[in-house]
Design a protein around this nucleic acid. Structure first.
Lengths: 224, 224
DNA sequence: GTCTATACTGCGATAGAC
DNA sequence: GTCTATCGCAGTATAGAC
């Protein structure tokens, strides 16, 4: 009976702390799957490749995640959890320049630290959002309208230029995600990977152009 | 012997104008392949799906294009032909505002008219540019450096703010291609496809923000 | 829990009748 | 030039020994 009272890391029928192994393996598989899905999309990825990358036999992947689609949605779920945490608490009383600069910096940091997540999301959207169809539900559209409303309020208050909020958000999304999704193109163009300092410079540039373009004065660059 | 003197639309051994059929079929296949590759990438696309979409038996696709990879590079070649035609003749003497606005408008028009081309390119880059490795050669990097040099000259002449040319180009590329690559996300967010007028508004917004962000005065919007 | 062996399907590609 | 039939292989998924 004690077994049933155990917390989240479940125990097996043998009473052994197999949760440890399970957790470790599931993480390996999820990480391997993320890399493969980021490169080849859902259809282009094979369970074999995922298993090999995770250092496990193919059957084990099916043991932990029943099907390829199941594994995919799990990977997707993890990504969407990482996402959308910022920019949630945006209000009319915030300073537009500070809020926008902060959002751009957060998005860029995400591109730098989780490029695979961005790529998987991009692949999924390009492929027609078959798996994300329920993600773009009423809640999501309401979130989007909420942010747009704040922009409109700022504009009405004369705090910034009359820029279409939707297109502004798209602009921020695309220009920041670009550094994750197209990292290979960037690498080939200037012959080397983007360093942390390169990302900082890119952030500064984006913030300078976008904020000035909206009639805002960029806040001072934070210390680095 | 006359057969051998015939111009490009070749004739078959039967002397019939089979070039017509060949041309028509090849076009169908290329169009079908573009749609499939745009959705599923190279690995995720099957020759069967292409053949079905083109309304031909699978074997015919192999007859016209020897292999899947051959067909893919052919599709890619067509795309790269469409691309990169604009912005080539940029010189220091051009007016920055006019030139940038024009480039943004051209890129947006491309996103509107050839979304599949943009998607295939995006997929290829996200997948690591395996097929495009030779596309990013010295010539390409020189092209890029050439444009950047013009920006630097404009900046040195005090015609625009000191914006990093590379990041500015990335910004224009990403924000315009976004309307092609992420069209599905956009459609789901605001419940309908972007119309021609929507694209025009998006262009105007991008031009307004980016040009002002670079310290430039946008030229008057052309008549529509 | 783990892994080998295997069922079954769909893939890219080709042979060969028409 | 066109299309059916088929080869060989890689794909997802599962059964069952350990």
């Amino acid at each position: 009976m004690d077994k049933n009272n155990a917390p989240q890391p479940l125990y097996t029928a043998h009473g052994k702390p197999a949760g440890r192994i399970r957790q470790k393996n599931e993480e390996s598989i999820l990480a391997a799957a993320a890399e493969e899905f980021a490169r080849y999309g859902f259809k282009g990825t094979s369970m074999n490749a995922i298993a090999t990358r995770a250092g496990l036999p193919k059957a084990n992947v099916h043991y932990y995640f029943n099907s390829k689609l199941g594994l995919y949605v799990e990977v997707m779920r993890h990504i969407l959890e990482l996402w959308d945490t910022a920019f949630d608490d945006l209000t009319v009383d915030d300073d537009p320049a500070t809020a926008l600069a902060e959002y751009i910096r957060i998005k860029m940091e995400f591109s730098r630290r989780h490029p695979e997540a961005s790529k998987i999301f991009a692949m999924e959207v390009i492929s027609g959002c078959e798996c994300l169809s329920e993600h773009f539900n009423k809640d999501y559209r309401n979130w989007f309208r909420g942010r747009a409303a704040v922009f409109d309020a700022w504009i009405a208050a004369g705090k910034m230029d009359p820029v279409d909020p939707m297109h502004l958000i798209f602009m921020i999304w695309s220009s920041t995600q670009h550094y994750a999704d197209f990292s290979d193109q960037i690498r080939r163009i200037n012959g080397k990977r983007m360093t942390r300092a390169d990302f900082a410079r890119a952030s500064d540039n984006l913030i300078a152009v976008i904020l000035k373009g909206c009639g805002l004065t960029p806040p001072p660059t934070p210390e680095r």
